[in-house]
C-alpha cells in the first residue's frame, strides 16, 4: 500500500493538461473489482439556496474501501449522507439525481429509508454511543428491526459484533456498564459494532478517527481493513495519509464537485487534475 506521499509529482503534473475533464479513469489498472454496490448519477444537492453538490457521478464497488477526500466544506460529507438518506431530516435540503443501491434508486418513492439505513450503516465523526449499557447499545439495532428471535440469538449477535469490532476482549466483563464510560477509541469501536450488529451491506464512515488519538486511530484503521472483506466501506477523511493507508479507491471533491476518482495508488501518485495534485501536495486545504 502506498504510504509515502513524498512523491515526485512534478512529472505527473503535466498530465492535467492532457485530460481536462476526465472524472473517472478506466478501471483498467485496478485488480478485477467486485460488482458495483452504489452508483451515483448526476447528484445535485442544495441546502436552502446554497448548492452543496454539483452533478456528482461516482461508482462505489463492493468489498472495497472507498475514501472521499477534499478540503473542508467540499461536499464529501454531504455526499456520504446522501447514500443513506441522512439528509432527509435536514430542513431545506433538496436533492436531484439518482443514487442506485444494488441497482435500485434509493430516492424512489417505494424505498423505505428506515430499511435502507439498516442496510447502509453509518459511523460518525464523534463517537455517539447511546447513554445505555454496552450490551444495549449493540443490541439496539437488532431489537428495533426484530432481527434476533431469541435472547440467545441476540447475545450471539452482540458478541460477534463486538468481536468483529475488536472490542469484545476489552468489554466482555463490563457489558452492563454505560457505553459512555468507555474511552474515546473504545466508544468509536462500540459504535462500529452497533452498526455491524444489523448486518449492513455498506458502512459509511464520516471521519471516524478524527476525534481520536493516534493509537486509537491505528486500531480503527486496522479494523476498517479487516471489515473490508465483508462490507462495502465508504470513508470520509481529511487525512490523506489515512486515505492512502486504508482505501483502495479514492474520490477527490472540491467545492461540491467531484474532481477525480480512481484507484488510490493512481490518484495519489499520478493525479490527472491540477487541483488534485495541488491538494495532495499540500498547496491548499
Amino acid at each position: 500500500m502506498l504510504t509515502d506521499l513524498n512523491l515526485d509529482l512534478s512529472a505527473s503534473g503535466k498530465l492535467s493538461n492532457v485530460a481536462p475533464l476526465l472524472i473517472d479513469r478506466p478501471a483498467g489498472r485496478a485488480e478485477a473489482i467486485a460488482e458495483i454496490k452504489i452508483s451515483a448519477r448526476g447528484v445535485n444537492m442544495w441546502y436552502g439556496s446554497k448548492q452543496a453538490l454539483f452533478d456528482v457521478d461516482l461508482e462505489i464497488p463492493d468489498r472495497t474501501v472507498t475514501a472521499l477526500i477534499g478540503p473542508s466544506g467540499c461536499g464529501k460529507s454531504t455526499f456520504l449522507r446522501t447514500m443513506n438518506r441522512m439528509n432527509d431530516a435536514i430542513l431545506g435540503a433538496r436533492m436531484e439525481g439518482d443514487i442506485l443501491f444494488d441497482g435500485t434508486d434509493i430516492y424512489k418513492g417505494n424505498v423505505d429509508p428506515v430499511q435502507l439505513r439498516a442496510q447502509v450503516g453509518m459511523v460518525f465523526q464523534k463517537p455517539n454511543p447511546f447513554p445505555k449499557s454496552v450490551y444495549d447499545n449493540v443490541a439496539y439495532g437488532p431489537r428495533i428491526h426484530g432481527i434476533a428471535l431469541s435472547k440467545e440469538a441476540l447475545d450471539e449477535i452482540v458478541e460477534i459484533s463486538l468481536q468483529k469490532a475488536g472490542l469484545w476482549d476489552e468489554v466482555k466483563d463490563r457489558l452492563q456498564d454505560s457505553g459512555t464510560s468507555l474511552s474515546g477509541g473504545q466508544q468509536q469501536r462500540l459504535v462500529i459494532a452497533r452498526a455491524i450488529a444489523v448486518s449492513p451491506e455498506v458502512i459509511l464512515m464520516d471521519e471516524p478517527a478524527s476525534a481520536l488519538d493516534p493509537i486509537a486511530t491505528g486500531r480503527i484503521e486496522e479494523l476498517i481493513h479487516e471489515l473490508r472483506e465483508n462490507y462495502c466501506i465508504v470513508i470520509v477523511t481529511h487525512s490523506m495519509q489515512q486515505a492512502a493507508r486504508v482505501s483502495q479507491r479514492t474520490a477527490f471533491f472540491h467545492m461540491g464537485t467531484l474532481i477525480e476518482a480512481g484507484d488510490t495508488a493512481d490518484v495519489f501518485s499520478n493525479p490527472l487534475q491540477q487541483k488534485t495534485q495541488d491538494y495532495i501536495s499540500g498547496r491548499f486545504g
Binding site: F124, F130, P131, H145, V191, R194
Partner: peptide, 27 residues
C-alpha cells in the same frame, strides 16, 4: 440532547418514534 445521538439512532434505521422514545427521552 446532542444531534449526534439522534443521528446515531437514525443511521441504525430507527424510526422517528423509536429515536425519540428509546434514545432521546431516556437521555
Amino acid at each position: 440532547v446532542p444531534q449526534a445521538l439522534k443521528d446515531g439512532a437514525t443511521a441504525l434505521g430507527a424510526t422517528k418514534s423509536e429515536t425519540v422514545l428509546q434514545v432521546v427521552l431516556p437521555a
